[in-house]
Amino acid sequence: MLPDASRWRSAANYEHVDTLSASDLAWEWLRRNEGYDRDYEALSDPGADREQLTEKIRQHWGLRFRRRSSPRPA
């Protein structure tokens, strides 16, 4: 379902943007990008080559995903 875009010109709908950090602002706009959305959804495909898709997203969108921490050797 598409979001309601009928009031997109309303300044009140974007007042929160003034308080966002740079990374929060980048995420706010990136999450609305259909191309990024398609690339991200491709990661959830069970048959997907996650390493290749992660590299594609890293190169195309300039993102880096944190790796899960591994347990330290005793």
Rank of each mutant, 00 (worst) to 15 (best):
1 M>S: 14
1 M>G: 15
1 M>C: 14
1 M>T: 12
1 M>W: 11
1 M>L: 14
2 L>K: 13
3 P>T: 05
4 D>A: 03
4 D>K: 03
4 D>F: 04
5 A>I: 15
5 A>K: 11
5 A>N: 13
5 A>V: 13
6 S>W: 01
8 W>N: 12
8 W>H: 11
9 R>I: 07
9 R>V: 09
9 R>E: 15
11 A>R: 05
11 A>T: 06
11 A>M: 06
12 A>M: 05
12 A>S: 07
13 N>R: 07
13 N>C: 05
13 N>W: 00
14 Y>T: 14
15 E>Q: 13
15 E>K: 09
15 E>M: 11
15 E>I: 08
16 H>N: 09
17 V>D: 02
18 D>E: 09
18 D>M: 08
18 D>Y: 11
19 T>N: 09
19 T>Y: 13
20 L>V: 02
22 A>D: 13
22 A>Q: 12
23 S>N: 10
24 D>C: 10
25 L>G: 04
26 A>Y: 13
27 W>I: 03
27 W>V: 07
28 E>D: 11
29 W>Q: 08
29 W>N: 07
29 W>V: 13
29 W>S: 08
29 W>I: 12
30 L>G: 00
31 R>S: 02
31 R>F: 02
32 R>E: 01
32 R>V: 00
32 R>T: 01
33 N>D: 14
33 N>P: 01
33 N>I: 00
34 E>D: 10
35 G>K: 11
36 Y>A: 04
36 Y>R: 04
37 D>L: 13
39 D>L: 09
39 D>R: 04
40 Y>W: 14
40 Y>M: 14
41 E>V: 09
41 E>G: 06
41 E>Q: 15
42 A>M: 04
42 A>D: 06
42 A>Y: 00
42 A>H: 01
43 L>R: 02
43 L>A: 03
43 L>W: 02
44 S>V: 05
45 D>F: 01
45 D>E: 06
45 D>K: 03
45 D>I: 03
47 G>K: 11
48 A>V: 06
48 A>P: 00
49 D>L: 01
50 R>A: 12
51 E>R: 15
51 E>T: 15
52 Q>I: 09
53 L>W: 01
53 L>F: 02
54 T>Q: 14
56 K>H: 15
57 I>Q: 00
58 R>F: 01
59 Q>K: 09
59 Q>W: 01
59 Q>S: 07
60 H>Y: 12
60 H>S: 15
60 H>D: 15
61 W>Q: 01
61 W>K: 05
62 G>Q: 02
62 G>E: 03
63 L>P: 03
63 L>D: 00
63 L>N: 00
63 L>K: 02
64 R>D: 11
64 R>S: 13
64 R>A: 11
64 R>K: 12
65 F>N: 03
65 F>M: 04
65 F>T: 04
67 R>P: 07
67 R>V: 08
68 R>D: 13
69 S>Y: 10
69 S>R: 15
70 S>D: 12
70 S>P: 06
70 S>E: 13
71 P>H: 04
72 R>K: 08
73 P>D: 07
74 A>F: 10
